[in-house]
Design a protein around this nucleic acid. Sequence first.
DNA 1: GAGTGTGAAAACATTCACAGCT
DNA 2: AGCTGTGAATGTTTTCACACTC
Lengths: 214, 214
Amino acid sequence: MKNNTNIPPATVQRLPLYLQCLDQIDTNSVGISSKKIAEIAKVNDAQVRRDLSYLGTLGTRGVGYDVITLRKQLELELGLVDGLSAIIIGIGNLGSALAEYGGFKEKGFKIVGLFDEDPKKLNKQIAGLTVNPISKMKDVCEKYNVAIGIIATPEEVAEEIADKLVDCGIKSILNFAPAMLKNKPGIQIRSVDLSQELQILSYYLDRKPLKVSE
Amino acid sequence: MKNNTNIPPATVQRLPLYLQCLDQIDTNSVGISSKKIAEIAKVNDAQVRRDLSYLGTLGTRGVGYDVITLRKQLELELGLVDGLSAIIIGIGNLGSALAEYGGFKEKGFKIVGLFDEDPKKLNKQIAGLTVNPISKMKDVCEKYNVAIGIIATPEEVAEEIADKLVDCGIKSILNFAPAMLKNKPGIQIRSVDLSQELQILSYYLDRKPLKVSE
DNA sequence: GAGTGTGAAAACATTCACAGCT
DNA sequence: AGCTGTGAATGTTTTCACACTC
């Protein structure tokens, strides 16, 4: 294991961003500076150094960070090395899109089950997986030791599905339904509401941007 | 307090959440308290009051907030009343899902164009719209005075598409491609990276959750 | 009594600026 | 010279607590 210093939430949010930066730089650069990362991630360079310093002493003064070490450390800290399993519930357009989304596999996640209640969707093949009824969820969760449930159902059933996920022993939920899930003790929930993102953009349309580009 | 005041970014992020809360409560309640909103949105009630106070003096002491007034004010502040137009670029699984996603319309956004370069996708009909080649983007943007461009393309072409959007006079970009777009002066960019969301969840899996539910 | 609006305090996050290492 | 790691300074956000209104 690692440095058990608690990493501030604001920093945790940015760690995946830094990982993404490493994928973005050209593959034969062996080292990278906080200045370069900051430029790609569009944050302040002191911020990058402070954030990375929570993971330990990774850089070399006067030189920078070694790309391979840095990636390893980021993956370790985020817990990506264990190859976490996830399932998707609700195989409509969005659920299908998520099932076929390459980015999950690339970052070490494995989608091991697709579930839907709609008889028209049952037994459909998507991304090499068969759509199963919700009743089979528990079996799959136990078999694959599934850590994360991804909800892509309509709003109306999201809460019910969330409860079932908890029942299946799942510890984290990524919710794409525009529903406000109730708190479940000991369960981490993140919600991504697509229309909320547009609304935030909408706010900044009328008026001056916060930071004038400089 | 007047609404000349610049609303803090952290508050702007939560305004759509509060709007969503209003949809969640039962339809015949005419008033709502900060405590109730806080409970649904899972934030502190003082936070709700402070946030809403930036929009003006909306509540009544001893009583609470009138649901209709509050919704109107939130929509006004977020700029949702004008019925903003958006286009989607990249009509793969995710782009199609977004095109058919009901939540946009519900919140006052109108998708007025779908674009893709792939000949196999051209002229497909999705959600009542025809998929057009990128070359037609400028025409559509001018015709409908499009404010927002939604990028759902593969990573490789995202930057190029973003530049084209700016060229079409678009002022805001919602980016779903796992690419780090360069800054464009005067343009608001928000990126939603699906796998980053999973990575953040992954971090909180190993260790104690930040806030133990209480 | 119930519930807002808001100063003041506390907590958290960002940025500066520089000592110290390569 | 170039770049990290980090105290100290600054800025932002959250929360408390209570005067005030209905």
